[in-house]
Design a protein around this nucleic acid. Structure first.
Lengths: 218, 218
DNA sequence: GTCTATATTTAGATAGAC
DNA sequence: GTCTATCTAAATATAGAC
């Protein structure tokens, strides 16, 4: 593995674990057992490292968010399990690059260009969630009004953006997998009340998946 | 107004507007037309300023969050308008000290003792929301299950914590009052589907309040 | 590509006169 | 209480040898 890539890998890990603001170029170099001078040979500075990590993040998440919009409905996302799995993947990608959200205000002040990209990703989330919700609610017994639907989507988009921050605030050092599963459960709960008669069945499935995950951990 | 209090006031404003990480003691002194030395006569440093601002925040919000728990049910919080107004006040207090949430990760790393307090405030939000929801849903035609109820409360607590961050990410420089009103609308929308027959009426009221606020602005 | 040594910048903080 | 002048510490970044 090339030094350049090792720098990116270790930077991502340290940013996530120790905080980006608190991680210096020296820390990264030390962790890799290389000199600061060497690090500056590969990257102009911390800024460039962050820019490249963000690029990775944007590409990966952007791809993932397109899936439910482009897939023909009811071909892939037709069961609770499918949606569960999909949301799990999205949250996992957010988790991998979670440092980006931990001090977002400062990050966007230092790199104002990222703002556009963050907003595009939010748009992507909104579109993905809309596709999923429309598919799930297609034969809902008590469908939401138009106002309710758009507020529901917005609440889910916010939840998908800040769940990991919220969970971390409540219990730091929480197991990542658990945290993500719970995030998915919280998201799907928002949809549940619209499902009417199927509601009990829907919940049984959600809980079954959640408990299945719990067992798989042990 | 004493210099000490002016320092606190200006610091709060600069932290909110320019970002805490980006605001130095020199900036604060300049804004007040006093010398850095003078600032350090009144406060040991930036840390102490932040600590006192947080203390103010905690006291104010903590008080507010107790209200719905301590009030006899159906005495104060018995109409949509009452709840709307209450949630508006809570969000406004969060807005006044919004800098605390803008780089929360870094803040908690530098002042680890604040973590306990933040969690207590979250608990306070959860309890306040529980009291409100129970009162609102008391004669709901389609009450949530126990699982749904606790997930609903948790989603609302998260929303109450991160709505201002989310809204700022979407449209910076947004009018504060509008942002807060929309946050309240988003929160109450989460409860709507459980209201059944009253649902349409509930929404009409919410929208009426929202539009009333819009007009009042002009 | 990698190292050592050093320069630059900036924020945080203090000393001592008035 | 307030000022001027100055110090310290830490992070970013560069120069030049190997």
């Amino acid at each position: 593995m090339k030094t350049r890539d090792r720098i990116l890998d270790v930077s991502l890990r340290l940013f996530n674990e120790e905080g980006e603001a608190h991680t210096t170029t020296i820390d990264i170099a030390n962790e890799l057992d290389i000199s600061p001078g060497n690090l500056y040979y590969h990257f102009k500075g911390k800024d460039q490292i962050i820019a490249e990590l963000f690029e990775q993040f944007q590409l990966a998440l952007g791809q993932t968010l397109k899936a439910p919009v482009e897939q023909p409905l009811h071909q892939v996302f037709d069961s609770v399990e499918d949606n569960w799995y999909y949301l799990y993947v999205v949250l996992e990608e957010l988790y991998q690059y979670r440092f980006l959200y931990h001090n977002l205000d400062d990050l966007l002040r230092r790199y104002p260009k990222l703002k556009r990209s963050f907003r595009r990703l939010i748009d992507g989330k909104r579109e993905a969630l809309t596709a999923i919700i429309e598919s799930v609610l297609e034969d809902a017994s008590r469908p939401p009004t138009q106002v309710q639907l758009s507020a529901l989507i917005e609440n889910m988009t916010l939840q998908l953006t800040y769940w990991l921050n919220y969970d971390r605030l409540l219990h730091d050092e929480q197991d990542a997998e658990m945290s993500i599963h719970q995030g998915v459960l919280q998201l799907l709960t928002m949809v549940a009340p619209y499902l009417g008669e199927d509601q009990i069945d829907f919940y049984r499935q959600c809980e079954a998946i959640f408990e299945g995950m719990l067992k798989a951990k042990k």
